[in-house]
Design a protein around this nucleic acid. Structure first.
Lengths: 332, 332
DNA sequence: CTGTTAGCGCGTTCAA
DNA sequence: TTGAACGCGCTAACAG
C-alpha cells in the first residue's frame, strides 16, 4: 500500500503538501495539486485512516448503541444513521444493549474506549443520571428516542403524549366508550407519556379511567398476547384496545383471533409506531406513525454539525406523530 | 487521558514493560507486573486503540456489509455477529448495500479503506467474479448467506435446495396437487435453489411443473402481493402457494384476504426463512426455518479463527433447514 | 504557496 | 527480565 511519502516522492513535493491536497486544507497551487493528484492516481494511494486518526486525534467513527439489533423498530433508524454518516465518510460502529442494564452500560464504555468521535445512544435501561453524566463527558453524545430533562439539547425524541392523544381520540371519535389500554413498561418515559395521552383523551370526553381496563405490558409481541388474555379474563366489557406499540397490538390481536374473536368486528385495535409488518396482516393495523427514520437522520445530523462542523445540515429535536388510519377500528 | 508513558513513569518501569503487561506478551516478573497494574488502576489507564492499531497494523475492527439494515431478515444475523465479536473485544463497522450494485461495491470499498481486519459480506447484487477477486485480496473475507463456487471455504450458507424440498413436500403430503410457486428473483442462486427443490418435490410425485403456476417475485412483501394478484388473474386453479420467503408469503396472503379468500381454507401457504413476525398473523405461517442467526455466529467464528487465531471456536459452512409446521396449510 | 520537523500513543526489535 | 530506540503513516505548527 502506497503511503503519503511515496506520493510526495513521486510528485516531487513535501509530505505536508500532499496532506494539504488530501484534506483540502491550506492553499496549494493548481499546478502542484495536479501533480499530487496524478501521483496519487498512479499509486492508487488511499490514506491510512488509522494514521490519520492518530495524528489528528479524530477517529471519524461514530458509535451507535441500540437496545436491540433484531426487532422491527431499529432497522429503519440504523438505516438512516448509516446512510447519513457514510455519505459524510464517517463510519458507524455498532453495539447492542440487548435490553440489559449491564450490557447497555458495557456497550457505551466499549464504544467510548474505541475512540469514537461521538455516540448516538438509544438507551432503554440506563438511568437518567447516568445519561446526564455521560453527556457531560469528553465525547459528544446524542440520545435518540428518549427525552431526559436537563440535557434537552442532546435529545432527539417523539412527542409521545400527542401520539397517545391521537390514538385514543381516534377510537373515541369512532364511538367507542369502553376502551382497554395495553401500556409499555412504566419505568420508561415514553410509555408513561403515551399513557398520559390516553388519559387526557378519555378526560376530554368525560370518561373515567378504569384500572380494570389497563394492563402494563413490555412492548413485545408476547407481552401483548399475554396482556390480551388477562384483559379478557377480567370479565369487563370493552370494544376497543389501544396498544402502546404495534408489536403488542400484534400479539394482542393474535390472542383474540385464537379465541375466535373477530377484529375489528368484535374488538377494534390501535397500535403505535407504524412498523412495517402489520400492514400485511388482516386487518391492516391503524396506528400512530413514529418517524424513527427521521429521528435517526437527525441524530446523525447532530453529530455532523456538532462534531464535524457541518453547518449546512438541518436539525430538529422533537418530532410529531401522525395518525395512520387503516382497517382495525370499526365505528360503533 | 493517561498514556502508556504516564503509567511507565508512575510505575518506575519502561514503556516496553507496560506494553508487555497490557498485551500479556513476553516475560514480566510478578513484582513489576503488580506495580504496573497498580499504576494503571490509579491512572484509570485505557490503551489508545488507534495507536495500538497503527503500531500493530491491526485495527481490531470487522466490517459487515448487509444488503439491508431494515427488514426482518438481517437483524437477527447482525445481533449474533455483534455479540460474538464484541465478546472478543473486536468492533463491528457496518455498511448497507441497499440492494444496489453501486452502493454494495462502494460499501465494500469503504470498509476496506477503513482498515478492517476482515469483512463479513452479505452480497445481494455483487457478481461471483467480483467476490472471488475480493476473497483473493489482502483482507480476509467471509461470505454469508451465499454460496460461490471456487471459494467454498469462504462461504457460510444454507442448503436451500433441501429447504425447497421440505416446503413443497409438506404441501404435497397434505394432499395438494395444484401448487403455485412464488419465487425469489432468479438471478440469485438461493432463489434458484429453492425453486429447484420445489421442482424435485413435484417430480417425486410425478406432477408436472406448470409455468402458469409460477411467478418470479422479488423477496419483498409488495412483490408477494403483486404476485398473488397475477396468479389469481390467470384463471388456473390451485389450492396451495409455496413462497420462496416469508415476506412474499405475507404479501400474498394479504392479497388473498383483501379479495375475500380464506387462508388456509381456500388457499394454503408455506413460507421460507421463519422470520419473527408472521407468527403473529392469522393463520400462523407454516415455513422453513433459515438459521440465519447461527450463520451470523459462524461468520464471526470464521473471522475469530482465521484472523485472530482463536482455535477454540466451532465452525461450519453449510446449514440445514427445518420445516416449521404451523397453521397455514390445510389437508386436502 | 511550500517544506521541515515534531509529535500522536503504542508495538517491537535488539541489547543489556 | 528489562529498557532504549525506532517506526507505524499521518497532521499540524512553524518557518521560509
Amino acid at each position: 500500500m502506497a503511503t503519503i511519502y511515496d506520493v510526495s516522492f513521486l510528485a516531487g513535493v513535501s509530505l505536508a503538501t500532499v496532506s494539504r491536497v488530501v484534506n483540502n486544507t491550506g492553499k496549494v497551487s493548481d499546478k502542484t495539486r495536479q501533480k499530487v493528484h496524478d501521483a496519487m492516481a498512479k499509486l492508487d494511494y488511499r490514506p491510512n485512516t488509522i494514521a490519520q486518526s492518530l495524528a489528528s486525534n479524530r477517529s471519524n467513527s461514530i458509535g451507535v448503541l441500540v437496545s436491540q439489533l433484531d426487532g422491527p423498530f431499529y432497522g429503519p433508524m440504523m438505516r438512516e444513521v448509516e446512510s447519513a454518516l457514510r455519505a459524510a465518510n464517517k463510519h458507524v460502529i455498532i453495539a447492542a444493549g440487548h435490553s440489559d442494564a449491564a450490557q447497555e452500560k458495557d456497550g457505551v464504555e466499549f464504544l467510548l474506549s474505541r475512540g469514537c468521535d461521538a455516540l448516538i445512544v438509544d438507551a432503554e435501561i440506563l438511568s437518567n443520571g447516568y445519561l446526564v453524566e455521560l453527556c457531560q463527558g469528553k465525547t459528544p453524545v446524542v440520545l435518540i428516542n428518549r427525552h431526559v430533562d436537563g440535557i434537552d439539547e442532546r435529545c432527539v425524541h417523539l412527542n409521545n403524549l400527542q401520539g397517545g392523544l391521537l390514538a385514543s381520540r381516534h377510537v373515541l371519535e369512532k364511538g367507542h366508550k369502553q376502551i382497554a389500554y395495553i401500556s409499555g413498561p412504566l419505568f420508561k418515559l415514553d410509555a408513561r407519556e403515551r399513557l398520559e395521552g390516553h388519559r387526557q383523551a378519555l378526560a376530554e370526553q368525560g370518561i373515567a379511567f378504569d384500572e380494570n381496563l389497563f394492563y402494563e405490558g413490555d412492548f413485545r409481541e408476547e407481552g401483548g398476547y399475554e396482556a390480551m388474555a388477562q384483559l379478557l379474563s377480567r370479565g369487563r366489557d370493552f370494544t376497543a384496545v389501544v396498544c402502546a406499540n404495534d408489536q403488542m397490538a400484534s400479539g394482542a390481536i393474535a390472542q383474540c383471533l385464537e379465541r375466535g374473536l373477530r377484529v375489528p368486528e368484535d374488538i377494534s385495535f390501535v397500535g403505535f409506531d407504524n412498523i412495517p409488518f402489520p400492514r400485511y396482516i388482516s386487518p391492516k393495523l391503524t396506528t400512530v406513525c413514529n418517524p424513527i427514520q427521521d429521528m435517526g437522520r437527525m441524530a446523525a445530523h447532530w453529530v455532523l454539525r456538532e462534531v464535524y462542523d457541518q453547518t449546512d445540515v438541518t436539525f430538529c429535536h422533537r418530532f410529531e406523530p401522525e395518525l395512520v388510519v387503516r382497517d382495525s377500528v370499526i365505528t360503533r
